[in-house]
């Protein structure tokens, strides 16, 4: 049996994608979040960055007609904070994951394709980075540097590439051994040509799936950082909302809405990206869903009738 190829022609991909409920559900969840984040100023009932005069009555107001999700310890509208908070999570998630996937992809492809000493050193480095627990290191570095949005993205991105590198390396190793790469070499093709035309297109689906899955990890890391108080003070984020809630007596005020709302947001995004990632994996990985992608007519074998009744 030859290894079934990974295949993405546009139309076949969409057909497979639409049939995959997990992927569609994930994408729908993410589109809602994305729309909220992009159009936050239009969607949010209040401007969370506008100063408000705090009165005793305005803090920790229960959800009601004026504030659908109540107010927080500073008298601000929780729903508006929640909508604007999606921006930070999505920005950090997408950019950090992009950095991770580019680094992991480069390291994985170079190690797998060139092999030899380069591979040994790169993989030793990867293993070293893999055994360091990510989160404590991220916390330490962000605490030492300033917790600005850029710093948070860089630190999460620069530490999150190890699994990508390992996956891409093993995929590259198996593609490299395939006959069409040998045929390209026999034509006289150089490394650049082979990497660009043969290796990269076949690694790409893996990179796409991986980047989507890594976004949810990055979002969780960012939320944890903010929850621990390491957030960009100039921007509202869900982790930061949780942090303030815990530090400023939401529990004793029984203001459950300040806790549940950002928590729900984090779960929503992480779940959305995870569903989309696994759905894409099924669509793109021919071993699970190969038949969705083939264009040629399949032979349909009808089950033979059981023993004819006498």
């Amino acid at each position: 049996m030859t290894d079934q190829p990974t295949l993405i022609t546009g139309r076949a991909f969409w057909r497979g994608f639409r049939r995959n409920r997990i992927a569609v559900a994930g994408l729908a969840m993410l589109l809602i979040a994305l729309a909220a984040a992009v159009f936050a100023p239009a969607v949010a009932p209040y401007d969370p960055y506008a100063p408000v005069a705090i009165t005793v009555e305005s803090i920790y107001q229960r959800p009601g007609p004026a504030h659908w999700l109540g107010t927080d310890d500073a008298g601000k509208d929780v729903l508006s904070n929640f909508i604007f908070g999606a921006r930070v999570s999505l920005t950090v998630g997408i950019f950090a994951s992009f950095i991770s996937v580019v680094i992991g992809g480069l390291i994985g492809i170079s190690a797998g394709y060139f092999g030899g000493r380069l591979e040994r050193w790169l993989m030793r480095f990867t293993d070293f980075m893999l055994v360091i627990p990510d989160l404590p290191l991220i916390v330490v570095i962000v605490a030492i540097t300033r917790p600005s949005l850029t710093n948070i993205i860089l630190v999460i991105g620069l530490l999150g590439w190890t699994t990508t590198a390992r996956l891409v390396r093993s995929q590259t190793l198996s593609i490299k051994e395939r006959k069409f790469v040998l045929r390209a070499r026999s034509i006289g093709a150089g490394h650049l040509h082979i990497l660009r035309r043969h290796i990269f297109p076949l690694v790409l689906p893996l990179l796409v799936v991986n980047s989507v899955l890594i976004i949810s990890l990055a979002i969780l890391n960012e939320s944890t950082l903010s929850f621990l108080g390491l957030s960009d003070p100039t921007r509202i984020s869900w982790g930061q909302m949780l942090n303030y809630a815990f530090e400023r007596g939401a529990m004793s005020s029984r203001a459950w809405w300040v806790l549940v709302t950002p928590g729900f947001g984090i779960v929503w995004l992480v779940l959305g990206f995870t569903l989309l990632g696994h759905g894409l994996e099924q669509v793109l990985n021919p071993r699970t869903e190969w038949h969705h992608l083939t264009d040629h007519p399949r032979m349909v074998s009808l089950p033979a009738p059981l023993n004819p009744q006498p």
Binding site: K179, F180, R183, S186, I187, G188, R197, H198, P201, L202
Partner: peptide, 18 residues
């Protein structure tokens, strides 16, 4: 390489599926 070319055994494997 321009003047010597090869045809391999396995036509299923010697073309890039994409």
């Amino acid at each position: 390489h321009r003047r010597i070319q090869m045809v391999f055994q396995d036509p299923y494997e010697s073309l890039n599926p994409m």
